[in-house]
Nucleic acid binder design. Sequence first.
DNA 1: ACGCCGATTCTC
DNA 2: AGAATCGGCGTC
Length: 202
Amino acid sequence: MPGSADLGRLLAVPAEEAALVLLGCTLSHRAPDGTVTVRLTEVEAYAGEADPASHAWRGRTPRNAVMFGPAAFLYVYLSYGMHFCGNVVVGTEGSAAAVLLRAGDVVEGEDLARARRGPAVRAHALGRGPANLMQALGVDRSHDGAALLAEGPLVLEHHGSVDPARVRTGPRVGVSRAADVPWRFWLDGEPSVSAYRRSPRA
DNA sequence: ACGCCGATTCTC
DNA sequence: AGAATCGGCGTC
């Protein structure tokens, strides 16, 4: 099992390559009330300033500043004024590339995840959808810029490459610009993978 | 200063 | 199909 230095190197590549590295990785959040760990099953690549669908497309702002930093830090943003979504910053410093974490399977702390998501939520749905995934983990704006491979509450771990035959790709969800690029990646057959919805526009 | 559009999700 | 609701960006 590679150490954190190795994973940091694996993530210092273009977003669509880093996305494949992140599939199957686990992300843990150690909070005062307990630890939740998810295994990533669905991600989306965003290429940075060159990508019309990226938050970094129009350059650096206070919100997206973390994207312009080094790889293996978490970029958290507020979506629609009410949901937090998380990205792993990838590529080289200054590239603003990131991978949106869209879904994951809760492999540790299911009770705590359900306490955060709601008592009626089925196990496979605890981490389904980018905002639901962050809610299950207990991640919010306070974690924007948090290191993922250093001492701290958030830990990202690689467990070897996933079987390439299990990886599926398709258009990114909710994205109207650059909708032709198949930069959504997911593991086939995982119940936690969110149902595909095409962009409301186009 | 004003308005519209989101990398969403849940409910009607 | 609609609502909840905040930040960024274009426009007046």
